[in-house]
């Protein structure tokens, strides 16, 4: 059974979630490209990491539940991994950026 044979009341929310999540993720990466400084660039990608990924994961959950005929929630694992790991990456990257900028300044004006 393929996914587009699912009942319409399931396909409508899935489609809306997909469009919304795709737009948010695209905006996040566009922000990564457009922002001027590194610290500003840290912010937009987390839109894709939270809402974008969340929307797509819920949509995927709905589709696989509909296909299996029972609730399938294993996509929750990916969401849990993203939520627990992204603060660590962000913290280390911020620390690295502060450290590297300080050491560069030191090199320039000793």
């Amino acid at each position: 059974m393929s996914a587009d044979m699912l009942p319409p009341w399931l396909l409508l929310p899935v489609s809306l979630l997909l469009i919304f999540g795709g737009l948010l993720t695209l905006l996040g990466s566009l922000g990564l490209l457009r922002m001027k400084t590194f610290y500003q660039r840290m912010h937009p990608p987390s839109m894709g990491n939270t809402m974008g990924a969340g929307c797509v994961l819920i949509a995927s959950m709905l589709v696989s539940s509909g296909l299996a005929g029972r609730p399938v929630v294993h996509e929750v694992l990916i969401a849990v991994f993203i939520v627990t790991t992204s603060p660590i990456t962000a913290m280390l990257l911020m620390g690295a950026a502060v450290h590297r900028e300080a050491s560069q300044r030191e090199k320039r004006e000793p």
Partner: peptide, 18 residues
């Protein structure tokens, strides 16, 4: 504190710096 870090990071617009 770990939960606060996850909250702050997952709301876009704020990042835990130090």
């Amino acid at each position: 504190l770990a939960t606060l870090a996850a909250i702050v990071t997952s709301t876009p617009g704020t990042v835990w710096a130090n």
